[in-house]
Write a protein that binds this DNA or RNA. Structure first.
Lengths: 154, 154
DNA sequence: TTATAATATAATGTT
DNA sequence: AACATTATATTATT
């Protein structure tokens, strides 16, 4: 057999359940983005760990739901009406979820900006800087690291 | 999920370079191009392959065409034909009124069917299969790849 | 609006 | 860490 292609990708992208709730705030110009996800009851859970969640807000150990703010560029609206929606994604397991498959988090503008700034300084970070940055961004060091790797790759 | 390929290492070292050259052919009718505005906070960091239409029927006369040549060089020489994938894309107006930019092609039924079949076998393809499939479908490998990605995501 | 092709990017794996 | 690939989210088009 010359071609041994046994890439057993029996991974089911069955992840957690997402609730979308929309609330309106007033702020700059962001936009509504609502995405439907399929809900899956957490059954298997064979996934290898590796991903972490970004969250950790003061408040103790209760489960907290991260809010992903997806910003979308307006076409050419100059109205300063402010209506933006924050879709908060509630996850059932949030303690130290290793149950996460491959969640893709979207960095906020602030986070990206900060990362960019840091990138301008050094394209690579020392562990110390990495930790620091991660702390500021409320991200795991690994995520910061990954970001830098991806950034370098562009 | 680490499947070893000890017997075969037909991996894709993927040392590809992309040349993109644009040639204009008899554009006697100007039209509005699409707008691909994407201002990222990253600031000058996006590069990704463009994907253009293939399958030109070349019926009409007035069209504005863009050709993108993608030359893939492989580090590992193959005993067989080393085929460089040259995809020249023309844009026509009859069958698909697609202009450059992000054009969305519509797959024919036959194409979809074949892709579906292939998908049933493996939800992912190795480069070789991808190339083969692309060849049969008269599509660019990239498009096959994208199709599989989207299919998986469903 | 829905469906889907195409793109961008976060995360993973390999070398 | 670079490099390659996959997964997922978002954008754009029909």
């Amino acid at each position: 057999m010359v071609e041994n292609n046994t890439t057993n990708t029996t991974k089911k992208p069955c992840n957690n359940l997402n609730f979308d709730l929309t609330l309106t705030l007033s702020s700059d110009h962001d936009h509504v983005v609502n995405k439907r996800k399929h809900a899956c009851v957490g059954g298997g859970g064979d996934h290898h760990g590796g991903l972490y969640r970004q969250d950790s807000v003061s408040g103790g150990g209760s489960s907290f739901s991260i809010a992903r703010v997806t910003v979308k560029r307006e076409r050419e609206v100059k109205s300063q009406e402010s209506e933006r929606v924050i879709s908060a994604t509630s996850v059932e397991e949030d303690d130290d979820g290793i149950i996460n498959g491959r969640k893709k988090l979207r960095l906020t503008k602030a986070q990206s900006a900060l990362l960019e700034q840091a990138f301008k300084h050094h394209s690579t970070l020392n562990p110390k800087q990495q930790q620091e940055l991660a702390r500021e961004l409320k991200l795991m060091p690994r995520q910061v690291e990954v970001w830098f790797q991806n950034r370098r790759a562009r």
